[in-house]
Amino acid sequence: RQSLLSPGRAAADVAEALARGERVALVFGPEDRGLNNEEITHCHKLVTIPTDPAASSLNLAQAVLLLLYECAGAVRKRPKVDTQNTEEAHPGGARQVTAAEQERLMESLKDMLLRLDYLHGDNPDYFIMPWRRLFTRAGLRRHEYDALMGLCRQVRHKMG
């Protein structure tokens, strides 16, 4: 399980990502059960909204409103950054990988680890989750992604 963020902490993270010129998606699940496990595996961070035990859930509109309100406030508090200037928008001069690129990396890594018999076929998606969290926390840059994809290709090639 990933650690759960408060709406305020999540909003600060969203504001930081937007300031770096990154795209952000907020995903909400159905009111009665939230996101399922497979949907959660594609989420980089999880948010929980604390409620009173007597009223333990919010409806979807309330949850969306509360989180977007927090995000808007966090964005307003941040200084403006020129996202056209690569050095300011992307410290170190390289952009972070997109969610689609990270998904391709996870599929490539999973395939490689299955071939190496590091992951077992009974539930590889569960055992790849720590890798997902690691790469999400690392904030991979494009050149790092390219290096890892190259490693996966080379291992698959050597394994036949």
Rank of each mutant, 00 (worst) to 15 (best):
M112C: 11
E107T: 10
E103S: 07
P91Q: 06
H44K: 03
H44Q: 07
R104K: 10
D111Y: 04
A100G: 06
H42E: 13
K80E: 12
L35M: 07
A74D: 06
T83D: 14
L67P: 00
N59I: 13
A63S: 11
K80F: 15
A61S: 15
H44A: 03
A94Y: 05
A54I: 12
L68W: 01
T41Y: 01
T48I: 12
A89V: 08
T48H: 13
A72Y: 12
R115T: 14
L116V: 10
A63F: 00
P50R: 10
L60A: 15
R78W: 01
E103K: 01
A72V: 05
D111E: 13
R115W: 02
R33G: 09
H42M: 13
K80P: 14
P50L: 09
H42S: 13
L113T: 07
D52E: 12
R95K: 13
L116C: 08
L68D: 14
I40W: 02
E101Y: 01
T98V: 03
L68S: 10
E88Y: 12
R115I: 06
G92N: 03
E87L: 13
H120N: 10
E101W: 00
V97F: 00
D117I: 06
M112L: 08
L68V: 05
K45Y: 13
L58P: 04
S108K: 06
E87G: 07
P53H: 03
D82I: 06
L67Q: 07
K80V: 14
R95W: 00
P91G: 04
T48P: 00
D52K: 11
G34Y: 00
N85D: 15
K45T: 06
E87F: 04
L116S: 03
E87K: 08
N36L: 04
M112A: 09
N37W: 12
R76C: 07
A94R: 10
P53F: 02
T51K: 01
E70S: 06
Y118N: 04
L113A: 04
G93W: 01
L60N: 15
E38W: 08
G73A: 12
R104D: 15
T41P: 00
H120M: 07
H120A: 09
Q96Y: 00
V81W: 02
K80S: 13
N85I: 11
L67T: 07
E39Y: 02
P91R: 05
L116K: 13
T51R: 05
M106H: 03
Y69R: 09
T41N: 10
A89E: 02
S56Q: 13
L66D: 11
E39V: 08
K45Q: 11
V64C: 14
D117L: 14
Q96H: 14
A55W: 15
C71V: 13
H120F: 03
E70A: 14
A54F: 05
A74L: 04
Q96V: 10
R115V: 09
K45D: 13
L58N: 12
R78L: 07
G34T: 09
Q62A: 14
T83C: 15
